[in-house]
Simulated assay, not measured.
Amino acid sequence: MKIIGLTFVVLFNFFFQSTLPSETSNQIIQTSKDEKEVSDEVLLNTTRKLTQKIENKLQEEKNIDISAIGISYQIKEIRIRVNGNQQYLNKIEKDIKEIANELAQETIFKDYSVAVNLQIPSSANKIKTNVNSLEKSLLEIGYKEVNKALQESNDYFKRDITLPTQLPPVTFTHNFGRLNHSFGKENDEFEIAYMNDHVGQNHYQIRVRPVQYKLEISDEKIDHTIKLKDGSAAIYSTKLPLDVLVFEKDKWQYTLLVDKRISNTVTKEVLVDIANSINEK
């Protein structure tokens, strides 16, 4: 795929159960009642294997320019986005559906429908031309300058998102923002990704969504419930592929995510301090 250095984002979303679809950078993953009998590990592995097989076959046999492949468990749908125009989509849509359906027959997703759509281009793609591969890959999937993405999100939600003023005590070479709103308002979410092009483990992310569409973390994956300065509760978990702190403030749900490889530096206490820095005078 063209999505580089964002595996941690994909893995995060898988382990949260929502009653509605949830988009990720590479996979659109969501749990329905039918899949709750299947372990998280099985679902994750099956999803990743199937999406990779579909991508490989479409690119190797048909040379199709794939933007993203995902699975929505709730509505039983395999979603595939392609780069190009409507004429290109009309030409390749049948082949895509046939290949995806054929490969899905070997999995627990054999009864899922297949939806094919165009990837909405980001204006950032046209603005920057001299960027390194990491920047290029992020711009291609809709990331842009944080301030621009934040303003776009404020306008979209019709109210302001307040960000933490504190950052983890590690170095980052890049930070980009994005408004995710491709699959209905239940998936609407603002995110910022911080990363280091030279130190792979320096990954940190903030995700913000309205509380009415908040994601729930299952009880067995909660390590601690922590009281923040404003009296609200935050949930901390190390039982996911990423360490996370989840809390609510001003009718937003915030999720802070950090790569486990820097958990000795970006500790629970650090994440709590970051959470407390929102609206801090």
Score class of each variant (00 low, 15 high):
1 M>Y: 05
2 K>Y: 10
2 K>E: 12
10 V>Q: 15
17 Q>L: 07
19 T>I: 01
20 L>P: 00
29 I>P: 05
29 I>F: 15
30 Q>H: 03
32 S>F: 01
34 D>N: 10
36 K>E: 12
40 D>A: 01
43 L>D: 07
43 L>H: 03
44 L>E: 15
48 R>L: 15
49 K>L: 12
52 Q>K: 11
56 N>K: 12
63 N>M: 08
64 I>Q: 07
70 G>A: 13
70 G>V: 10
85 N>H: 14
87 Q>W: 00
88 Y>M: 00
93 E>I: 06
95 D>T: 13
96 I>C: 10
97 K>L: 03
102 E>M: 09
112 Y>L: 06
116 V>T: 14
118 L>A: 06
118 L>W: 03
121 P>K: 07
124 A>R: 04
128 K>N: 03
134 L>V: 14
139 L>F: 01
139 L>Q: 07
139 L>M: 01
142 G>L: 13
143 Y>A: 14
144 K>F: 02
145 E>K: 10
148 K>R: 13
150 L>K: 13
152 E>F: 07
153 S>L: 03
154 N>Q: 05
155 D>M: 05
156 Y>Q: 06
158 K>S: 12
162 T>Y: 11
168 P>T: 05
170 V>A: 06
172 F>N: 09
173 T>Q: 08
173 T>V: 03
175 N>L: 01
176 F>D: 05
180 N>R: 11
180 N>G: 15
183 F>Y: 15
184 G>E: 02
187 N>C: 15
191 E>H: 04
191 E>D: 11
192 I>V: 13
194 Y>A: 08
194 Y>E: 06
195 M>E: 11
195 M>Q: 09
196 N>H: 11
196 N>S: 13
197 D>W: 04
199 V>N: 12
204 Y>H: 14
205 Q>R: 15
207 R>T: 13
207 R>M: 05
208 V>E: 07
227 K>G: 03
230 D>L: 07
231 G>E: 02
234 A>N: 04
241 P>C: 10
242 L>V: 13
242 L>R: 05
243 D>N: 08
250 D>Q: 10
254 Y>N: 03
255 T>G: 01
256 L>M: 10
256 L>K: 06
258 V>I: 05
261 R>C: 01
264 N>V: 02
264 N>A: 00
268 K>H: 04
270 V>K: 13
270 V>T: 14
277 S>T: 12
278 I>G: 12
279 N>C: 08
